[in-house]
Design a protein around this nucleic acid. Structure first.
Lengths: 213, 213
DNA sequence: CTCATCAAGTTAGTGTCTCTAACATAAGTT
DNA sequence: AACTTATGTTAGAGACACTAACTTGATGAG
């Protein structure tokens, strides 16, 4: 397809075109811009991201995004929301096949949490870097709580508690803090793959054990 | 000695004027700009910070900073370096009067770590938000390692280890990760003072105990 | 099919921002 | 006093976010 050089691939093709014909309308510019945003945020870093760059990548004029997003922040929020879906889905998928009520499930969630932070550091920073004015969207808050909920239900099972008791919340909160900080530090130190001098899985297992007994 | 070190007083009084007379030269613009940067970063958030704003606040033209800093990033780095000094000094001060080799010292460091993150969230984010391209300065790295070293030497004493062994580094790394993540989360959730639903000191004591036994 | 409508593009332009160049002034040195 | 250097200024280039006004073409009613 020739037009895919111009239009960042998103699965949607320009509407009118048979073959490589250039069409005035894009097809699915919104999705293309979100993908361009994601890509640029990872490549150049979140604060070097510019709407102009995304436009160049998507092959449209610099005014085009404003038909789809209120402003730059909304573009970033859209990209982060998609990222959080991936993050949450990956964590759920990581539980597959691991017996319920075991520490292994906690470890698996933690590993996937960190893995995402290292795989998509730009998106991770946008969500959690906490630049208050940049991103303060209720949908982001909700997504975070959902992910936390997954962890809490696992913690409850490990502790043989009937539900999300206060003690479950306490332990879960601590575990989350640890994994969250770990995610930042590993990336900041450039210890991406190894877990630094330590084996990542061992660290997570150690902490899980200590916190859930 | 550079001339900027000569005027390290923060009041920065204009040189020629007796009284309120406006002088062409500022007195200590470098320090004034760093303070303006710090203030604006806290007020408006790190990514809304602009050199122009800092100039307005300091009462100079928008070109003036470039006699003292290479670019915007260097201004931010300077503000962060000062912040890290405060951070480290506060942690050291927090140890005063607490018996050596006790978990209380670990807890005290953690409390002060979190306290700084909540008191100066903008500076904290600039240092640790990890926007790679924004700030990648060797001096920042060094400062971080210094702070980590303080923690490690306390951990070693708690574990009755002769020095900074691998196990000391492991436990210290985990404790740092926890406190670091806690700092981010407490601020992000707007749980500034309370420690959320939990008492901050209790959380830190709990984790210290579990990790150092 | 034709025409009106409307979503989704475009170009052009404004105001702000970072940073540079050229110049001006203050302060120290000799 | 004259020279030199540090530190300020104004003017302006180039990038960016965003808006206004116009254009295109898909769609649906008659």
């Amino acid at each position: 397809m020739t037009s895919s050089e111009k239009y960042l691939e998103t699965g949607a093709t320009p509407k009118s075109g048979s073959g490589g014909k250039k069409s005035y309308h894009h097809g699915d510019l919104r999705a293309a811009l979100i993908e361009a945003t994601r890509q640029l945020v990872e490549e150049k870093g979140p604060d070097s991201f510019s709407v102009s760059d995304a436009c160049r990548l998507a092959g449209v004029s610099t005014a085009a995004p404003y038909k789809h997003f209120k402003d730059k922040t909304e573009m970033l929020v859209a990209a982060v929301l998609e990222g959080m879906d991936r993050h949450r889905n990956n964590m759920i998928a990581a539980l597959d096949g691991i017996p319920e009520g075991t520490n292994d499930r906690i470890t698996a969630i933690g590993l996937e949490y960190v893995a995402f932070a290292l795989r998509e550091p730009g998106i991770f920073r946008l969500k959690f870097g906490g630049f208050t004015d940049r991103i303060a969207d209720e949908r982001l808050e909700q997504g975070g709580q959902q992910s936390f909920g997954i962890l809490l239900s696992e913690v409850a099972k490990c502790l043989h508690e009937p539900g999300i008791t206060e003690e479950v919340r306490r332990r879960g909160f601590i575990l989350w803090s640890f994994v969250h900080g770990l995610s930042f530090i590993l990336y900041d130190q450039g210890l991406a793959e190894k877990g630094g001098e330590f084996v990542l899985r061992d660290l997570l297992e150690d902490v899980s054990k200590r916190m859930l007994s």
